[in-house]
Design a protein around this nucleic acid. Sequence first.
RNA 1: GGCCCCUUCGUCUAGGCGGUUAGGACACCAGCCUUUCAAGCUGGCGGCAGGGGUUCGAAUCCCCUAGGGGUCACCA
Length: 486
Amino acid sequence: MSSIRVRFAPSPTGELHVGGARTAILNWLFARKNKGAFILRVDDTDSDRSERKFVDNILESLEWLGIDWDEGPGRGGEYVPYYQSERLDLYKKEINRLLENGRAYWCFCTEEELQEGREEAKRKGIPFLYPGKCRNLENSRVKELKENNLPCVVRLMSPEEGKTTVEDQIKGEVVFENRHLDDFIILKSNGLPTYNFASAVDDVYMQISHVIRAEEHLSNTPRQLMLIEAMGYRPPLFAHVPVILAPDKTKLSKRHGATSVEEFRARGFLAEALTNYLVLMGWAPPDDEELFTMDKAVMHFDINKVGKTAAVFDEKKLAWINGHYIREADLDRLTEISIPFLQNKGMVPDEITSQEKDMVKTVLEVSRERIKSLEELPELCDFFFTEDFAFHEDALKKVFSREETSGNLELVYKKLASLEELSPENIQASFKELSEENNISLSKIVKPVRAALSGKLMGPELNNIMIILGKEKVLERIEKAKNLKT
RNA sequence: GGCCCCUUCGUCUAGGCGGUUAGGACACCAGCCUUUCAAGCUGGCGGCAGGGGUUCGAAUCCCCUAGGGGUCACCA
């Protein structure tokens, strides 16, 4: 009965946010480390904002990240169903128990009434707490009001004195005074449970041992503890992880750029880079190494060592990590995931042949160490795929504006034309000979050739470019570039 | 405003029991390598929010102040 069971319980009101992803990863690491179970539960009690497409997005994002769940959507489990919207009978049952035991009560206060109270409290500069007006309604009165179909909710009869303390695995002991907490709503007038209630009930029923979730839930925790106490169950342990901040130190949101896992994937980040980075904000392995696999993270993970401070999301560091994984990735796999980025720019056809695929692979081999995200690939290597590549402004200004460029290209043309086939050796030798024979610097030869072949001043090694392009195209492009003088 | 959490280089962090020139990484700068750009290597810049205590000795313990964040919904 002491088995470790954790859960990630997103509400499908948006795409999987990197903050949510980190919470999921932390839960997953904890479960894997302790040979426990990682449960995925969909907290969709907000019928207005929950959408099926977001459920799909969250599931896909988690799968893409490699965060697999032992129980949950698509996988079933002992505590099925894992959608709160399908567990309504259970909540109803627990609400009724609470009602019968006098630990909860029906409340018929209207929105207007409450709003008035809030405004008055604001005027007085004191926090608004529900005054408990409906606490002691006679049963007959309740029955009467209900028969008249008056909108009503159920509130928990919360203790007025004492303290509720949360033994948080990350924050330590956090104490809340019960008098600051009012009789909060557990059943909404639309018949659906509130988050606090459904979450507490499910955590208990699903035998969750540790609730690892975002810090913003810390202030909800005493309420859930009260609920669990009122229902007569044992509460799980809690661990609240700090939020992720944007560079301006406010909560990371859409206006800061990419925030969802899907957006990062679309921008050319690798799953292992994103997970590595996300784990790194708030946790560090014992050896302080920053680049690690999830396997290694699992081996050393310790929830108690997760930092208490909110971390600023640093895209530069993510990019560095991503560059590392791009360089390390299996080339075939990298080829597969790179193709869409090329197709996106029309560089390779949507229906790709195996020859074209091989070409992408070859190009990747000589280009990968120059990019930090797959998104940068098209611009870096467009000239490998088309004759219609653009000449970069720098190339025009620094190379093609020069008097001697045309003549030098002509020299190169002649020299290369005499070669049987291009090889690293004979290309090298040719350039060297040209330099010596004509007494011109190597760079005066090399730069124009690079510019002629790629339209750029920087890029993969020239040898590689020439060999991949092949003698025919190389000569064609040099010929064409001779007349490009600006 | 009430309640709660947090505070080590610009950023992410390491710093069980108080004694370190406060360590690493990203970024930035410089150099090396190099037929470009990267990558790689080497070096540099840069920090314990402030103030009081406790102590022979505090980034580490206590208190206060300041700053940041979260939350105060019939949202999760």
